[in-house]
Design a protein around this nucleic acid. Structure first.
Lengths: 233, 233
DNA sequence: ATCAGAAACTGACTTTTATCAGTTTTTGCT
DNA sequence: AGCAAAAACTGATAAAAGTCAGTTTCTGAT
């Protein structure tokens, strides 16, 4: 066992009903467990960087990361988030390309690194695993296509309302109806694809219209139906 | 042999060094060849429709299709094009989802339909095929991520210049330096994600600046370096 | 070759969004 | 608890892009 004592074993992920790894044989699971390296990442730390070569993929045990591309003038475009049970970086391994996005931690995370040749082996030897990975990628591509259409066609107002709802879906609300992910206004702008000030103004409007309540960076959702209406669902 | 005489056999595609099918065993190739149905589609015909269930996937032998999503007020957002040797529709099969886009023919096409269970069999029994498909999907997702970032951050002007260059790359220029794909202004607008009039105005500017020449719907590229500069490559 | 309809074009105007510059509040570290 | 820096906010203005309405040109069918 290469791990330090309080790092997760793969069994703990399986116990979480891990969507991709649960079809591994006990032997395959042992191989992965033996080969992997777990690390704790603090908020702000970068796991891998766009344009760099990565030699393995990452399985998020806990915490939240943002996956973003850097565009003009260094501005980020957040493509998606990763949370527990998500795997990231596998696409670069499989398509032998440099990392397409940067992965940065926004909530302290425990992440396991698994070497790339393990992934090749698993895909080749375990068709169920390969199919699960394929399905995951296909789902992501479907989401990306939706994202493209929304950015191209919806107003910034519609998009912000929609993003709030998508964040609620992905990360859920706590018992006080507060979004369980805390983002700066700049980060929200980098998801919507707009200027920070535009997000600030619209959040303020949503607040006035009693759709949300703002508590520092925390956002409490007051009126889901109202947001849905604005978002043109 | 179920095909009418002048339809392509899979061997003809393999002769084209088909990126995904070339790793099939002769037996697998025979099965696909036996099960498939080839059809000729005229410009404007729809192969499959967003939101509908499809039971097989399609292999393009010749011609060009646009894959688009329909957004607000029925406006199209073109996500990508498919040409010879491209396969489409496979993602819905693998992820058991409804079609994410509509596939419409923009240049008369010959397209083979292959039943979905063939795809499942091939993915399960031929790891090399599965890996190729995986790589294809990963590449598409990488492109989609670029697309998202561009739409979010670049001006319409930059994007149009970039789209012209991408079209040149994908479809090449003929011996007169003319783009070998013919799109309406509306279609160009539906790729860029802007209003038709905006595309018209910018094309006019590009023409005045001697970057392109317009011959009806045909676009002759005059100055690649100039377009690259505008596109912020 | 003719012609109808669609597409392309153009100008004027409106709306949306971004930028800029300054002020206020919050966060996170010590 | 204190404080510096970053983030959030705000108002004014500029720029980018969209819409509307009319005219001209092109495409494709007969």
């Amino acid at each position: 066992m290469k791990n330090i004592q309080n790092f997760p074993s793969c069994e703990e992920c399986i116990a979480k009903d891990h969507p991709v790894f649960k079809d591994l044989t006990p032997e395959q699971l042992d191989n992965v467990n033996y080969d992997k390296a777990c690390n704790i990442y603090k908020r702000g730390m970068v796991v891998f960087q766009e344009g760099h070569r990565i030699n393995g993929f990452y399985c998020v045990f806990s915490g939240i990361l943002k996956l973003y591309k850097t565009g003009i003038d260094g501005k980020e475009q957040i493509i998606r988030f990763a949370k527990d049970t998500d795997i990231i970086g596998y696409r670069s391994i499989l398509s032998s390309e440099l990392a397409c996005t940067t992965a940065k931690v926004i909530e302290d995370a425990t992440i396991c690194y698994i070497p790339g040749d393990q992934l090749h082996t698993l895909v080749t030897e375990n068709p169920a695993f390969a199919m699960k990975l394929m399905q995951l990628t296909c789902k992501e591509l479907g989401e990306a296509n939706n994202y493209i259409t929304d950015i191209a066609q919806k107003t910034v107002r519609e998009r912000l309302a929609e993003i709030l709802l998508l964040l609620k879906e992905r990360f859920d609300l706590d018992e006080n109806q507060v979004l369980q992910i805390s983002l700066t206004r700049e980060e929200l702008a980098n998801i919507v694809g707009t200027a920070t000030e535009s997000v600030i103004r619209l959040l303020s409007e949503f607040k006035q219209d009693r759709l949300i309540e703002l508590q520092g960076r925390k956002i409490k959702i007051l009126n889901i139906a109202g947001l849905k209406k604005i978002a043109s669902f």
